[in-house]
């Protein structure tokens, strides 16, 4: 027997999971940020149900602190690929008094997304939200299931997860509960880029090297945007950088890079000795920062 490549096997596995999500649930959204992982998920969904359209819509929880390039990309992607796109904003949650902005130099709306997300899940009465999270990203995500149960409060119980044995999925739930589905669980950052290369997918420009005014925060470069409050000792400088992840501008750091094509990005990722989450200030807050956020209902 000719063994398939790892990526081919992972693609088939992801499609299997997306089809299980469609077969088990009525109302399903793909959480779509315009980042590379959600682009891959949306593209896999098109492939999984071909020649029919995917029975999912795209949901973006917008912190209001996103890079403008990503938002433009997001809208174009949805239109070009025939997806219904729904956007819910953290600002609306703040205006409604549901959450309060953090204050201080490292203030971020990243954590506030959880409330907006859970409100959107309730509003659309979602049975499941599909995300692009991968086990290789972070040690708490390494413990995730493909089908991850959330109670009526949207919370994750990592110590009592439903066992996923063979490929048998127990996707039963009660009213008000929902699932998070992670079809890319077994993918790596490199797999994501190789998939993008294989199908020649468009991604936001900020994934490629460009000149940008940045400021040093801890071990990462933060882009200077209206959402980042400069401190007296901050010295902004213009550098050639690219982003490895795309998220809230207040906590997504850039890296020095000259990679300007998909192939160059692949070469760079292959040679990198740091994980992509190392560019995320939100994960550097504490050793169990991700687990703590996930318990509350974060992705």
């Amino acid at each position: 027997m000719v063994l398939k490549s790892g990526l081919e096997e992972l693609e088939a596995e992801a499609i299997y999971m997306l089809r299980e999500a469609a077969a088990n649930f009525d109302r399903v959204a793909i959480l779509f940020s315009g980042g590379k992982d959600s682009i891959v998920v949306a593209h896999l969904a098109k492939r999984a149900f071909w020649p029919a359209s995917p029975p999912f819509f795209l949901l973006h929880v917008d912190t209001g602190h996103n890079f403008p390039e990503t938002l433009v990309f997001r809208d174009r992607f949805a239109a070009e690929n025939g997806f219904d796109l729904q956007v819910r904003t953290v600002q609306a949650s703040i205006d409604a008094g549901r959450v309060q902005d953090e204050v201080g130099p490292n203030a971020s709306r990243n954590g506030l997304q959880t409330v907006t997300l859970l409100d959107a899940i309730a509003e659309f009465r979602l049975d499941a939200a599909i995300g692009g999270a991968r086990r290789d990203e972070e040690k708490a995500r390494a413990k995730e299931r493909f089908f991850s149960h959330r109670n009526t409060f949207g919370q994750w119980d990592p110590r009592n997860q439903r066992p996923e044995i063979w490929r048998l999925i127990n996707a039963r739930k009660k009213h008000g509960e929902h699932f998070r589905v992670f079809p890319l669980s077994n993918w790596t950052e490199l797999d994501v880029w190789e998939f993008i290369q294989k199908y020649d997918l468009a991604v936001p420009d900020i994934y490629f090297a460009h000149e940008r005014e940045v400021v040093r925060r801890g071990s990462v470069w933060l882009g200077v945007t209206p959402f980042v409050t400069l401190q007296p000792d901050d010295t902004p400088e213009v550098r050639t950088v690219r982003f490895r992840t795309v998220g809230d501008a207040t906590c997504t750091g850039a890296i020095d890079s000259s990679a300007s094509s998909i192939q160059e990005v692949i070469d760079e990722v292959r040679a990198s000795r740091r994980t992509e989450r190392s560019t995320r200030a939100d994960d550097q807050r504490s050793d169990a920062a991700m687990e703590d956020r996930k318990l509350q209902g974060y992705f």
Partner: peptide
């Protein structure tokens, strides 16, 4: 990777690594 695992120094759930 879980807080409880790290404090008790045992593996509780499956972790996946590449």
């Amino acid at each position: 990777g879980l807080r409880a695992e790290r404090s008790q120094k045992i593996t509780i759930d499956v972790a996946y690594r590449h």
